[in-house]
């Protein structure tokens, strides 16, 4: 009974702030905490804020590119870690996979920015900070998360499934595409979603490596939020939460684990 109460309190703690935020996004009053009646006017304001819309579009592009590239690279890295036992620099490699998972964002952001500046001086690329630099930085820190997700699936996979396919006459490359990939597909999808979320949510690393003209949505929100609470941000936050909620519900249905033989 006490346990149930504690559980309920825990969930209330997790969800109450979000619920309040959503409720107050429909507040007509500009004063956030004074209820001025029901209104959707802040959503209208939001719809006409080109800066926000541009940033959202950029964030979406960055997240899709990041998630796709990070899934490809992360899957390769997972294959390397699970299937190749010995190769030169294995320790360095597994270290480079594990490190971004625990690296404070300010350090990653600083390091990436300093790298881009050094590269620009040395080889002239990337010229200035732009969407390109944001994408590179995002792929780098998302890759590790994809690797961890795919790795756990690969480890579980029965190696004799691949052997059986080889034994039945399928060539190695075909085995990879016909047997291995379909079997780890749920992990790939989960990894893609995770990378997408991390990328579209990132503010600290983006703030370091961004340049003029490449402002992501979290950067816009962050700079507005630093000035204080505003009903427009409440509305924007509600939109983001709704979109994410719907996406997660859909993904959950799609990725529901099926029993494996």
């Amino acid at each position: 009974m006490i346990l149930l109460l504690l559980l309920a309190l825990g969930f209330a703690f997790l969800y109450l702030p979000i619920v309040l935020l959503v409720i107050y996004s429909f507040n007509a009053s500009r004063l956030v905490t004074v209820w001025g009646g029901l209104s959707t006017k802040w959503y209208a304001v939001l719809l006409h804020d080109d800066k926000v819309l541009d940033a959202a579009w950029l964030s979406l592009k960055v997240a899709v590119i990041t998630a796709t590239a990070a899934t490809v690279l992360g899957t390769l890295a997972a294959v390397v870690l699970v299937r190749f036992r010995r190769f030169p620099g294995r320790t360095l490699f597994s270290g480079m996979i594990a490190a971004p998972l625990v690296m404070p964002e300010v350090i990653t952001g600083l390091a990436m920015l300093l790298l881009f500046i050094a590269m620009e001086q040395a080889v002239g690329w990337p010229s200035g900070r732009s969407m390109t630099t944001i994408v590179i930085a995002h792929i780098t820190f998302c890759l590790s998360f994809v690797t961890v997700v795919v790795q756990s699936r690969l480890v579980q996979m029965d190696i004799s499934l691949e052997e059986a396919a080889l034994d039945l006459g399928a060539r190695p490359l075909k085995v990879f595409f016909v047997i291995t990939l379909p079997l780890i597909a749920p992990a790939l999808a989960a990894g893609w979603l995770l990378a997408f979320t991390l990328s579209i949510d990132d503010v600290v690393i983006s703030a370091f490596v961004t340049g003029p003209g490449a402002t992501t949505l979290p950067i816009v929100i962050f700079s507005k939020v630093r000035l204080g609470v505003s009903p427009e941000i409440n509305a924007l936050a509600t939109v983001v939460i709704t979109v994410v909620g719907v996406a997660i519900a859909a993904a959950g249905r799609f990725l529901r684990p099926r029993p494996q033989g």
Binding site: S160, L161, E163, A164, L166, D167, L168, G169, I179, G261
Partner: peptide, 20 residues
């Protein structure tokens, strides 16, 4: 000679049926 070119087949202990 690789397994996919041999005139033998194997039944695996785990059966290794492709679950998909």
């Amino acid at each position: 000679v690789p397994p996919y070119l041999r005139p033998v087949n194997m039944m695996f202990q785990s059966y290794a049926l492709f679950p998909h």
